[in-house]
Computed example of a mutant assay.
Amino acid sequence: MTGQAVMLRLIIRDPVPGVAYSLQDKDNRTVGPVTAGDGPIAFDVPVRVAPGPRFLGDFVRSEAGGRRFVYIAIGVSAGQHASPWTRRAKIDIHTLPEDLLNQALAGKVLEALLPGRDKDGGPACATVRPIAPWRAVD
């Protein structure tokens, strides 16, 4: 297996209550679906970091030009077939700063606080940027 394991924690600050959210793996399968309540929800995402850095793992997706990201599936995409929402949130990881990666490689968890709602009041989707910079936590 290539790369050293690190953990990313994606926290959705204000998800839409009653809507399902889940991680989506490389094969577009939903993993760990959670139906949002009134508070934040979080997903821990294991990834591997190889020299470069290169990000690898079951949840790491890629695009041309070196972009690496993780998908959070929402509503129908997360297996909630009666949902009015069919969305995915794309969270970039290829831009993580080297100092944070070094902390993760030393055992810290890298955490991102994400918005849960779009301008239309529905679940945030497309490329979702953290509300504050990524941070390393115990």
Rank of each mutant, 00 (worst) to 15 (best):
I72M: 07
P15V: 03
E111N: 10
F69M: 10
P17W: 13
R29H: 15
V31H: 09
E98A: 06
L101P: 08
N102C: 02
L56I: 12
P133S: 06
K90Q: 14
L23S: 02
D92W: 02
A73G: 09
R135P: 09
I93P: 01
D120P: 09
P17Y: 12
A126F: 10
R54G: 04
W85C: 00
N102P: 01
R68P: 11
R61P: 00
G37L: 03
G66T: 12
I72H: 10
V60P: 04
T86C: 06
V45P: 02
H94I: 00
L113A: 09
P40S: 14
A20I: 01
L105R: 10
I93W: 11
R9Y: 04
E111F: 02
F69K: 12
N28V: 04
P33D: 12
K108P: 01
D14H: 07
R9V: 10
G116D: 13
S77K: 09
D44V: 04
I12N: 02
F69P: 10
G3E: 13
V60E: 10
P84C: 08
G107T: 09
Q103N: 05
G18W: 06
L100A: 03
R129L: 13
A124N: 12
N28S: 09
Y71I: 02
P53T: 09
L23G: 04
P115L: 07
D118E: 15
G75D: 06
I41P: 05
G39V: 01
L105M: 06
D27F: 07
D38A: 08
E63L: 03
I41W: 01
